[in-house]
Write a protein that binds this DNA or RNA. Sequence first.
DNA 1: GCAGAAACTATACGCCGTGAAGTTTAAATA
DNA 2: TATTTAAACTTCACGGCGTATAGTTTCTGC
Lengths: 236, 236
Amino acid sequence: MGSTGGRRERLRAETTAEIKQVALRLMASGGPDAITLRAIAREMGMTANAIYGYFATRDDLVTTLINEVYTALADAVDTAWANAPAADPAHRIQTWARAFRDWALANPEGFRLIYGDPVPGYQAPEGGAAPDAAHRVCTGIAALADAAWPHAEHLYAHSDFQWPDFDGGLLSKVRPAFPDLPPAGVALALRIWGHLHGLVSLEIYGHLQTQTISPDKLFQEELTQLVRSLGIKPEG
Amino acid sequence: MGSTGGRRERLRAETTAEIKQVALRLMASGGPDAITLRAIAREMGMTANAIYGYFATRDDLVTTLINEVYTALADAVDTAWANAPAADPAHRIQTWARAFRDWALANPEGFRLIYGDPVPGYQAPEGGAAPDAAHRVCTGIAALADAAWPHAEHLYAHSDFQWPDFDGGLLSKVRPAFPDLPPAGVALALRIWGHLHGLVSLEIYGHLQTQTISPDKLFQEELTQLVRSLGIKPEG
DNA sequence: GCAGAAACTATACGCCGTGAAGTTTAAATA
DNA sequence: TATTTAAACTTCACGGCGTATAGTTTCTGC
């Protein structure tokens, strides 16, 4: 045995957790750029090289952080979705989208870490840094599309999407969860994702502020038009 | 005199141009991260510090580059818009959007430079790095909104946008160009910008590829739904 | 009690931006 | 033309970075 509960293993797990926690703290205060092995080590009273005992390389650490942060985002939007009443799809969809933006505004550096160029020379591993969390978020949006599909289906009669157009890992989550959603519905989900991502990312990166004083109002308008374009009447 | 045509001034202008050109070449081949003063100088057979005679700081150089690249993007989409027949708004809007995406796919590093975290510790100057080019692009999208406004207006009867909601610099370009476009139309333009930016930026940063095999088809669907949501019939 | 592994440090290399000081070169002036 | 001056550029230096190598301490299992 010795694989669990050993003193050494426990210390190791604690140190690993501390490294990640310090890295996230540095990121929150100084942006993704502030995630440097030397800064983390300094904060922990160690040498930078000591970290190599826990992460093979800086990029490995960053990938782990992306996973954790992306998972936190997925948790946030999943929770918002789960807590909104299923009987009111329009409200539920807007709640999801608002949770997405709220999380991004509360964790701008995390958003940059996930969706931007995280850290100077970082190279994501093949298949993406956090494919599971990404698929979770996409599945969340597929839930929006699924909720709206009965109302919106007629708008997509022309489209010729097929299952092979999409990633297998994504479909393995989406198809069992939403057996009635056709390929065109998944495409709709990805488009909605793009719409929301675009507005939020313009805002997070400061490009919206040079155009409008009220990104809030703009996003609210987006939500209104989103449910309208899905063929759902705004709640009320 | 001496302010133009002098030998010294000419050499200076040439060197400045070469610095920018080398920087852009480095960026195209190695990403924005590859824009380092030392690499540029190495390429030019100079010392890194020599560049300080032309740009006060690395961030100044980067800001200049962002301006040039952003201007190139604005030129590309403006040209596409100007060359598309005004009589077919749907086709013209799709042409603009396709030019936007095509430019991004052809210049992914430029897109990252403009819209992402360009370079390790880069801090954009106040007011944004390239406000003029940004406003030009937004004005281009305002043209899309203006072309569609007669068809789409009824969808925005509820909205309460006012002129003060928007940036003065943007409005100083948009309002003279499109005197019939109300504040809600500018909001529509920003939303369209967000939609397109989102899809393109997910694709450029590799987040779409882990979800779908055919970003092309997805974008085409976006264009179809865009003109439909604007109340314009797809051309045919 | 001791072998061995795990955790960690020390040193070093080559990258980076940038400041200070010194040198060459070309233009401006007298 | 001779001298001053300023621009262009180099050299050296500092502190930051990731990380490879080698050495040291400390804990664990036999």
